[in-house]
Design a protein around this nucleic acid. Sequence first.
RNA 1: GCCCCCAUCGUCUAGAGGCCUAGGACACGACCCUUUCAAGGUUGAGAUCAGGGGUUCGAAUCCCCUUGGGGGCACCA
Length: 502
Amino acid sequence: MTEVRVRIAPSPTGPLHLGTARTALFNFLFARHAGGTFILRLEDTDQARSTDAFERDIIDGLHWLEMTWDEGPAVGDEPECGTYGPYRQMQRLPRYREAADRLLAEDKAYYCYCSPEELDAERRRQEAARQSPRYNGRCAQLTAEQRVAFEAEGREPVVRFRIPPDRTIVFDDMIRGHVAIDTSALGGDLVIVRSDGTPLYHFTVAVDDAAMAITHVIRGEDHLSNTPKHILLFEALGSAVPQFGHLPLILNADRTKMSKRKSETAVANYRAEGFIPEAFVNYLALLGWSTGTEEEVLSLPELIDRFDLASVNKAGSIFDRERLEWLNGQWIRRLSPDDLIDRLRPFLEAEVAAGHIEWLPSDGELRALLPVVQERLPTLAAVGDLIGFLFVKDLEPDPALMIPKRWDAAKAASALRAARRTIAEVGRVSWEADEIEPPLRRLVEEGGWKVGDLFMAIRVAITGRTVSPPLFDTMVALGYERTLARIDRAIERLEAQPAVTP
RNA sequence: GCCCCCAUCGUCUAGAGGCCUAGGACACGACCCUUUCAAGGUUGAGAUCAGGGGUUCGAAUCCCCUUGGGGGCACCA
C-alpha cells in the first residue's frame, strides 16, 4: 500500500475562508488518521488578486487551528519543508511551461488566438440562443499560415487542452460513489495557459498533484463537475489519477453556498470574537461528519482517531453559529485556570484599547474571578461584558433599575442605607462571600422584603447592571472600600430622584 | 440552456431491510437548583423519514419517476 499524501491548496486571494478551513481539516484528519503526509500548497497564479497579507492570514489561521503540515512553502523565517517543492505555484512556472510544451508537442493541446472579446461575444450569443456555453473550436485545427497571420495581427495566444468528444469519464468518489460525466458537457477545449504565459487552475492542479504524488484529492463539492477535466489532464500528462473525495458544501441560512455576503466566512473574525480553536475545529469536523456515536465534544486527537471519510455526509450543511457557541462554552469550561487567563488577556487588552475598561486586572485578580467567570463565558470576548464593571473607576447606576416593583426611590434608598451599614460592619471583620450573605439575609427578613429585591438593588448599585456574577463574589472582587463607595453613590442618585406621587 | 450532486425534527445529525410507535445534540417551552445571569439536572413540544410508484413476508434504509434544493459550465481558484 502506498503512503497517503493529501494537500490543501488555498489561493491567497482572500482571508482564510471557513470552507477552506473545513477542507483543510478533513484533509488533515484523513492524513493523520492514516499516518500519511499533509501538504500545504499556495495557489497564487492569480497575480491580480493574490496578496502577501492574505497569504499571512491563511497561514496564521491554519496555525491557529493547530493544523500542522509536513510539507509546505517557506513562510517568514521558516524554511520551505518537503522534497516535492517549491510549494508556491508562482515558483513552479517552468514546470507548467514544460508540461504545456509536451502537450503541445503531442498535439494534446494547441494555440488559440481568439481574443477575450470574441470569446465573450460568442458566449453571449450562445446564452441568448439558450445554448450551453462552450468553446466552438475555432482554433482547433489552424494551419501554419493562419497562425502566422494571427501572430502578425499581434494576437497573443492562449494554450487550449483538447477535450476528447464522446467519452464518458467515470470515477469512484470516496464520498459519493460512482460518478459519470460525459466529455460533451465540459464546455469544449480548455484554456490551460493564459496569453501572458501564466498557467490556469485546472492545469496547475493536475500538474502539481501529479508532481507531488498526491494520492487522495479531498475538496469541496463545487469541484465535482470539474473532476473529469482533471482526470483527462492526468491521463494526457501520463500520470496516475488520484482518488477523489468531494465534501459537501457549507451553506448560508438560505441553503446557498456559503458566501461572505450572507455569512461570516473569515476564520480570523471568529478568532477575534473569542472562539477558541478547540471548539472551532470540533464544530467544523462535525459539520458534515459524525462519529456515529453520541459523542459531541471531541479534541483534535480524538477526531483524528475516529475520522473516516466514508462516513462523511453527502448533503450540504448550514453553518449554525448557536451550536458553535455552545461548543465554545463547553471547551472554555474545560480549560485550566492558567490557560484561560492567558487566552483572556488579549481580549481584556482590547477592552482597554476600546475604552470599555480603564485598567487591566492582574493575573491574581483574574484567577480569583475565574470560578464565577468560566462557566459564564460563551466566548472569550464576552469577558468585558461580564466583569468590566470591576475595572472602571466611577459608575453612574440608573436609579430606575435599583427600585424594585412596588418600591419607590425613598424606600430603595433607605434599604440600601441599611444594607450599607450591615456590609460595613461585617466587612470590618471579614471580607468573604460566605460571611457577607447571612447578615444581609437577616436584614431582608427584618425589613419584610424580598431577597431578590434588595439583592438586585445592591447588584445595580455596585455593578451598574441587572446581570452580573453572583452578588457576594462580586462584592469580594470589588473590594470593601469600593463596594461601600459605590453603594454611597447609588444612594445619592436615588435621593436625587424626584418623589413619585402615584 | 446543458451536465453533475443531494433530500430524516427549525438547525447539526444517528440510522447500511426487521432493534424505528425514528435516537442524540443545538435552539425553544416547563420544572428543579437559585440573589440576577449562566452552568447543571429533569422534562416537553418538534420529522406521516420531500411526493409517487415498485422490489420484499417486511423499507427511512434497495430501484425508478416526479418535485424541490445545491453546484458546475471563465485568459478565478
